[in-house]
Amino acid sequence: MTLDDGRMTLMEHLRELRNRLIKAILAVVVGTIVGFIYFDPIWNFLKQPYCRLPQAHQFDKGKCTLVVNGVFDSFMVNLKVAVMFGLVVSAVFWLYQVWAFVTPGLYQNERRYTVAFLGLAVPLFTAGAALAYFTMDKGLALLLGFAPDGTLTLVSINEYLSFALAMLAIFGISFLMPLLLVFLNVIGVVRYSLVAKHTRMVVFLLFVFAAIATPSQDPVTMLALALPMVGLFFVAEAFMYFHDKKRDALDAARARAIEEELDGPSTGSADAVGTTDGRDQD
């Protein structure tokens, strides 16, 4: 039973959250099962950045070989790859479940951005992950290059996979930050004037974030993450400028319309009073 003003009760919110979570988890589980079935081609794709390393940094010259250290490493690699694949392929569905849970608290004009939000979130995440995939070998080569001469670098399959998944996730999620800023602007939480006042600080913090967030923490990978983030931030800032300009113009037009509507009856009442007074004087 809902409240008279259309709001949901606490129990209804909890039931709604439970239903959304179940649907999202089921979607991820289905994607994970598919990831287990197609593990080999997925793994061959993920290990290509390591295979692109110079032969001097590889354990078996002429072959792309990673080391298995423990009994459970092989299973954990299969599980990690399958779960990550399930999260990615079901992203549209579980993102929609999150959005559908949030939108009842938004106004009608704010809900229409659902399709645009989902339509931009997936390509942005994919672009970030793709950038990480094509720059991963540069960071690995730089890190492995610090090994002293005469030493053999053994990269375990579990360590490499953790590094690769962290790179893909961090780059992908980082590319969503400007979209989040745009969303907050659309619903009226963040204004362009506030962001423009702190543009230099935001750019500096983006570089700091890139330096801290990248697993390799090398300058090549840091710049590969920071520069696109700064570019996307300026795109988001430009959108906020035009959106706030349009919104301010609409607000001003509404204010004028309301003012004219309020002034109209009062002027008419004054004329009526003046006419009555004239009749009384006569």
Rank of each mutant, 00 (worst) to 15 (best):
N69Y: 03
F101E: 01
Q58P: 11
P49V: 01
W43F: 15
P41W: 02
V83Y: 03
Q108P: 07
L66P: 08
Q108H: 12
L95F: 08
W99V: 13
G70P: 07
Q108W: 11
M84I: 04
F93M: 00
T65S: 12
F72K: 09
L46S: 07
H57W: 13
T103A: 15
Q48C: 08
T103V: 13
L46P: 09
A100S: 14
K63M: 07
G86P: 02
W94P: 00
G62K: 00
Y38L: 13
R111L: 13
W99S: 04
N69P: 04
R111S: 08
D40T: 10
V98T: 13
G70T: 04
P104E: 13
Y96T: 14
N78K: 15
V77L: 15
G105V: 02
M76F: 14
N69T: 03
R52C: 05
T103F: 10
F93G: 00
F93Q: 00
V77Y: 05
V67I: 10
V102E: 08
Y113F: 15
F39D: 10
C64E: 02
V102H: 10
P49E: 10
Q48I: 09
L66R: 04
V92Q: 10
T65Q: 12
Q55D: 15
Q97P: 03
V98M: 14
F36S: 07
Y113E: 08
Q108Y: 12
V88S: 02
V89P: 01
G62V: 00
A82E: 03
G62S: 02
D60G: 05
Q97E: 13
N109T: 12
N44C: 07
F59M: 12
F85H: 00
W43T: 02
P104R: 05
V83C: 11
Y113R: 09
C64T: 07
Y96S: 11
L87M: 11
Y107Q: 13
A91M: 13
I37H: 10
N44S: 12
G105R: 02
P104C: 08
D60P: 04
F101N: 01
I42P: 05
R52N: 15
Q97H: 05
F59I: 05
P49C: 11
V81C: 06
K47C: 02
G86C: 06
W94D: 00
Y50Q: 01
W43K: 06
Y50A: 02
Y107W: 09
M84Q: 04
L66S: 09
F72H: 08
I37Q: 08
L95T: 13
V81H: 05
M84D: 04
F45H: 12
K63Q: 13
C64F: 03
F85S: 02
D73M: 04
V88K: 00
R112K: 15
F45E: 11
G70F: 03
F93H: 08
L87T: 01
M76E: 09
Q48T: 12
L53I: 11
R112V: 15
F59T: 06
M84W: 14
F101M: 01
I42C: 05
Y107T: 14
Y38W: 14
F39Q: 07
R111M: 14
V89C: 01
V83N: 04
V88Q: 03
V83D: 04
W99R: 03
R111N: 12
V81T: 04
M76S: 05
L46W: 05
K80V: 00
F59W: 10
